[in-house]
Structure formats: structure tokens, C-alpha cells
């Protein structure tokens, strides 16, 4: 973990509100790790680390002042990372079900692990992604039960996580979820991202951000 600057090389628009940011810097990291990036606001924001054409990359949903700064305004961004635990998938063939906000992380996982990537986007995708991509809830819900896998990682909205959980909860020990609980520091100091897992108190930033499905409370 260290402080560094990220220099934007390219920004590509994935769909109506989500962008792919490719950086000039090289940073060693493991699948599942994230980075905290500065904003003009009082806290840094967490983003899952990934790669795009071998370059360091993240994807960002632009929805406020902080993400607009990251996507449109700044060229160099102060950051610290890599943070969090590496995701080590179980044996067998997996599937990563992700929203466009996690597309670079999914891409990196596909390069590193034996898995397929399925992207579920609410709105039309602006360029061709090298994965199976479905647009809209209806198509996503139709595709989901057809997926065959030994393990599944879900990286997306709460509604995406819940529908995958409801579909596959009989295989809960093979389901994994990224949690986007609010983080203040990203390093385990502030305790703002803690939650009660089935095995006790956990912190998203240092014990996660990826957790097994049966660790989480779905009530």
C-alpha cells in the first residue's frame, strides 16, 4: 500500500453514465483489490482495480461531483492502494457477473482465472465489450438461470446481487459478492465500513471487498 498519482491516458464511455479510465502508470495488484482516489470532496472514493489491454484501468459511474471530477476534470489523480484482500477463486470454471462499473476488474479476472464474464448493463453499451453483454433487466433475468459454473462472483448494484443470490442461493458457498459499503479510509483505520457477517465483525476494506455469499446477511 502506498500513495501515488494516477495519470489518465484514455477515457472511454461504456454506457449512458459509466466510463472506462485507462492510466499511464503500472501498478502491481491482485484481482479483487481496490484503490482510493481523491475527489474535490472530503473523502476519497474506492474503485476496483483492473486492466484494459494490459494497462491499469478502472471503471467509474459518473453520478456526482466526485466522480465527475475523476472522469471529466482531473488528469492526474492522487490515490492510495492497492487495498483489500486478493480474490482467490475456488477450483473449477467460474463466471463473473458484473455491471459496467466493474468491467475492468472482470476483464482482469478473466485473464487471471478460469472464468467467463457476463456484463449486465441497464442502458445501451457504446462500444463492443469482449464479453457476453446483456442490456436491460429483462434480458439479464432471462440469461441468469442458464449460467453454468462452479463458482460465481457478482460485482454490481445491490439489485444485481440480490437477484443472483435468489437465483443461486442453493449453491451459496460458491457465490461471491463485492461490497460497496461506504469507506472513509480504505485501510482499516476508521471502521466506517464494518458489518456483521455470519462469522463475526468484518471490515469491507480490509477483510474484503469480496465476500462469500453465506457470510452476508440477506434478510
Amino acid at each position: 500500500m502506498e500513495n501515488f498519482c494516477l495519470t489518465k491516458d484514455k477515457v472511454l464511455r461504456i454506457n449512458s453514465d459509466t466510463y472506462l479510465l485507462i492510466f499511464e502508470e503500472r501498478l502491481p495488484f491482485e484481482p479483487g483489490q481496490f484503490v482510493m482516489i481523491e475527489t474535490p470532496q472530503l473523502v476519497r472514493k474506492p474503485f476496483m482495480l483492473g486492466r484494459w489491454n494490459e494497462a491499469l484501468a478502472i471503471s467509474v459511474q459518473m453520478k456526482g461531483v466526485g466522480t465527475r471530477y475523476i472522469v471529466q476534470e482531473a488528469r492526474k489523480l492522487k490515490a492510495h492502494g492497492p487495498l483489500g484482500k486478493a480474490f482467490v477463486p475456488p477450483e473449477g470454471r467460474g463466471v463473473v457477473v458484473a455491471s459496467p462499473t466493474c468491467v475492468t476488474m472482470a476483464n482482469y479476472l478473466q485473464k487471471r482465472c478460469n472464468c467467463e464474464v457476463v456484463i449486465g448493463s441497464k442502458t445501451q453499451v457504446r462500444f463492443e465489450l469482449p464479453f457476453r453483454t446483456v442490456v436491460g433487466d429483462h434480458e439479464f433475468l432471462r440469461l441468469l438461470p442458464t449460467l453454468q459454473y462452479d463458482w460465481c462472483l457478482v460485482a454490481g448494484s445491490d439489485s444485481m446481487k440480490r437477484v443472483v443470490w435468489e437465483t443461486f442461493k442453493n449453491k451459496k458457498e460458491h457465490l461471491f459478492f463485492t461490497l460497496e459499503e461506504y469507506m472513509g479510509c480504505g485501510v482499516g483505520a476508521c471502521k466506517s465500513c464494518s458489518f456483521l457477517a455470519s462469522s463475526g465483525l468484518k471490515y469491507v476494506c480490509k477483510d474484503g471487498p469480496i465476500f462469500r455469499g453465506d457470510e452476508l446477511c440477506w434478510e
Binding site: 472530503l42 473523502v43 461506504y182 472513509g184 476508521c190 471502521k191 466506517s192 465500513c193 458489518f195 465483525l201
Partner: peptide, 20 residues
């Protein structure tokens, strides 16, 4: 001291608020 309910932190333009 145990866990308080989420969300445990939020912020505005000039302040942070926490109930850790």
C-alpha cells in the same frame, strides 16, 4: 463497544459525520 448500524459515515460539502 460493538457495531453501530450502517451507514456509519456521510459527508456534505464542509463536514463529515460519523456514528462509529
Amino acid at each position: 463497544r460493538s457495531l453501530t448500524e450502517a451507514p456509519r459515515m456521510a459527508f456534505g460539502s464542509f463536514y463529515l459525520i460519523n456514528h462509529i
